[in-house]
Amino acid sequence: MFNAGFSVNSFKKGLLLSVPIVLGYIPVAVAFGVSAVSVGLSRFETFLSSLLVYAGASQFAMISLIGVSHISAVIIPVLLNLRHLIYGSIISHRYDVRMPFVTAFGLTDEVFAVSSSILESESFLWGLELGAYLSWLFGTSIGIFGGEFLMSSFSLSDSLSFSLTVLFFILLLPAFRDGRKLSIVGGGLVALLFHYIGYTFLGILTAGLVIPLLTVKYRR
């Protein structure tokens, strides 16, 4: 037992309910492993990213910017992660979290989505998070060690790198559903304009800070 509130059954239930997340994570993690190695990260650095950062979109953003500027490779993923402030805030109100320093580590988009729809104990969250985390590490390892084979054997290089675009696209869909079209169109156009004149990082930063400020102000 980790603490008086730990429930093996809830943990197992969480682990079981992590299966759909696992199925979703493995291909994305494989793609991350392949992409990271193909943009020049070492195998160690690639695995370290998944081991320590454990945030899909941020990891993809980080590797796509690490060759451009180290500062942008830190700032943009962190800006992307600001949405986690909302997740943590909601979960902390819904669950009796006794060990936030453990629970917080695995609170990804998908874990949040499942845990916010099923009200259980903190042990459940740990089961859910552990299953998802291990699959992320497993998938990354496949990408790292099988990537070279995939790239050389099937000329999949471009298409595997395209997984990054696919991931951003899919993560964009819920925002469309939530009616955030103004931010989506505004952010996309500003980023595209800056991208065209060669200041991609500045465009992404503007999209993350200025556009939402204007949108919130416009809506008030």
Binding site: S183, I204, I211
Partner: peptide, 12 residues
């Protein structure tokens, strides 16, 4: 934060 997340994702 919600608007920023949507805008950033779109930019990326």
């Amino acid at each position: 934060l919600k608007e920023s997340s949507a805008s950033l994702m779109s930019a990326l």
